[in-house]
Amino acid sequence: MSLSQTGDRLPASGAARGRQRAPRGLAPILLPTFSLLIVLLAINYFNPRAISYFGFNLMLNLAVPVTLATMAQLCVITVNDLDLSIGAYVGFIACVAATLLASRPWVGAAIILGSVALYAALGALVYLRQLPSIVVTVGMSFVWLGLALLILPTPGGQAPGWLHALVSISPPFVPFPILAALVIAGVMHVVLMQTAFGTLLRGAGGNEAAMARAGWSMLRIKITAYALAGLFGSLAGMALVGVTTSADANMANNYTLLAVAGAILGGAEFTGGRISPIGAVIGALTLQLAAVALNFFRLPDLLPGFRIPSEWQVGAQGLILILILAVRAVISRSEP
């Protein structure tokens, strides 16, 4: 009798622990949010006028394409892969949008849809031949870059008017980039974290063999994840050219880094399907603001002989990433 009582009480302590741990569901988002706040405070300190409707519109004018590219990367990370071609792809779509989509809309739309299909096929290839996604996508980055150069050998082109109008919307009270980020975060959170469908994608990242055993087609899951990445990458390319109005094959090359960094900054792990879409959106915004904030710090004056400002911007983004990950390491180490 005493035995069965013990048996009941022993696991009970485990239940208490489970309850304690429940709020950890929020933890992945806390740190990105905190870092976003710090960057905002820094901007506010150096240039209070930037914290305004127009200020955010200016500072975050490229945030929408970056956030969309981050979401594309997140879809691939969810199924344990990594896409090192997303930057080149966004550039390619931007070139298509600035040329064919404007001159012959149907052809342009068909090419973009075809590209999404190619992404899906890539997912099938990676799964069927069990190829490392990193290397396949490194190869693909050359393919997209080559195609972009074929379509638009020299920088130029003209974005369709409707695309420019779309990203120039001025909603009341909330600046468009912030509104867009909120919508993207909300949609992705529901799709990946809440729906039964998203659970399948994350499950594939967590334990591929188990998914196959439960009767799910891993092929279909990979295809879906890559197709989603292609879709978001296409949206990113169109949003980008909508903002810049003209295109260049190499214009989005650094998006590959930004997208990985944003997803990781937002709490995603590299493997195991542990992701946080809301965190990733916050991460993308943080990196974007950090690069802008650098201009307010007037770094060029502090470093005489400074030649390539954009280099320092990306370098600063790298440093911020290191810093945030360091804080994360310290936090996880201090946890019992």
Binding site: R129, L131, M140, F142, G146, A148, L149, A249
Partner: peptide, 26 residues
Amino acid sequence: LGVGARDLFTGLIIITVITLAGGMRQ
């Protein structure tokens, strides 16, 4: 061929090689 075509081919060759090599391994 132009730069674009060269990039395109380089990428395709890398993917082809890796596909074949991966297939062998499998």
